[in-house]
């Protein structure tokens, strides 16, 4: 995955590792650890979405639905049927992979707006199921008393333990996904994004690769959903509605679609923005999101991470200018 990415990874890991110790001593920001647990959970969704959208070029407004399917599978299996949470998490990923395959095979034949509409429709349907299947999901009032995760027999309850568990998983997933990108499969995904016809002509089964990356993104969202369930220990359909799919997309776009680091940066930033700083807007929050989306799309299409490479490019062209 390249020396540069490993270096950034080490830096990021050091920062994430030190973060709680930097904020915990200060009362005003000590709850940032909790915010960062959510940011880590959302990062898993956004890393998958970045592969799907930024690399393979396929839009999905269904990520919140997969996040929810993972969450509810975990919630129902552990609280109603007493299944081990880790096994329930695996069951969630299996359910999500199967559903993503069923939805993806027909939907990924569509392109652009049509694909967005199809995935949006699927997301809405799933959300209605969460709200209506009262016997299983608790309906609009949700589920509560979901058991905690256990690690070698010990309950994981402290924020700090959750923080390191979630971010540990994020880094493992990140390494996995970087490896995928820097491989035959990743190149094929980028090729599909650039020119589907040309990709087919060099032997890439474009339809099946699109379905596979859609399934991977769904599985990552499902893992995130399971973690979320056990962290908050209660579920409500409104955590998995269309607004959340849009938020995930916004996180990826703000950070930068063409890079997994962008997904990470965007998710952390937008989680803080959403949980902390935009609360003052209350109902007008959606307007603020719209404004952010517009500003990013117009002035910074490559997202925050493109700021760094922009500067490098300027620097390089300045050097070239000096050379000639």
């Amino acid at each position: 995955m390249g020396r540069r990415n490993w270096a950034i990874m080490l830096g990021a890991a050091a920062f994430i590792g030190a973060f709680p110790w930097l904020v915990m001593p200060f009362k005003a920001v000590s709850h940032y650890v909790d915010v960062m647990v959510f940011a880590g959970i959302f990062s898993l969704v956004c890393i998958g979405l970045s592969l799907l959208m930024g690399y393979a070029g396929q839009i999905s407004l269904a990520q919140a639905a997969f996040f929810g399917i993972g969450a509810y599978t975990s919630g129902i299996l552990t609280s109603k049927l007493g299944v081990n949470p880790w096994i329930a998490m695996c069951a969630g990923t299996a359910v999500c992979a199967a559903v993503a395959w069923l939805v993806g095979v027909p939907a990924l034949r569509l392109k652009g707006h049509y694909l967005a509409m199809a995935t949006l429709g699927f997301g809405v349907i799933v959300n209605i199921i969460f709200a209506e299947e009262v016997n299983w999901t608790g309906g609009p009032s949700g589920m509560a008393d979901i058991p905690y995760l256990r690690f070698f027999g010990r309950k994981i309850t402290s924020e700090l333990a959750w923080y390191y568990l979630v971010w540990g998983i994020v880094f493992l997933v990140l390494i996995f996904c970087f490896h995928v990108i820097h491989s035959r499969v990743g190149r094929a995904l980028r090729a599909i994004h650039e020119d589907e016809r040309a990709a087919e002509s060099v032997g890439v089964p474009t339809a099946s690769f699109k379905v596979k990356v859609f399934m991977l993104s769904a599985v990552l969202a499902s893992i995130a959903g399971s973690l979320y369930t056990h962290y908050v220990t209660c579920l409500n359909p409104s955590s998995f509605n269309l607004m959340w799919s849009i938020r995930f997309m916004l996180m990826v776009m703000v950070g930068g679609m063409q890079s997994l680091w962008g997904a990470l940066v965007g998710t952390v930033l937008m989680t803080f923005v959403g949980n902390e700083w935009l609360q003052v807007f209350a109902e007008l929050e959606i307007l603020a999101y719209g404004a952010i989306l517009l500003v990013v799309a117009l002035f910074l299409p490559g997202g925050i991470v493109s700021l760094g490479s922009l500067r490098r490019k300027k620097h390089a062209s300045a050097l070239e200018g000096a050379g000639t």
Partner: peptide, 8 residues
């Protein structure tokens, strides 16, 4: 090589 072979 498939996705899992690549990721791992």
């Amino acid at each position: 090589s498939g996705m899992f072979a690549a990721g791992l």
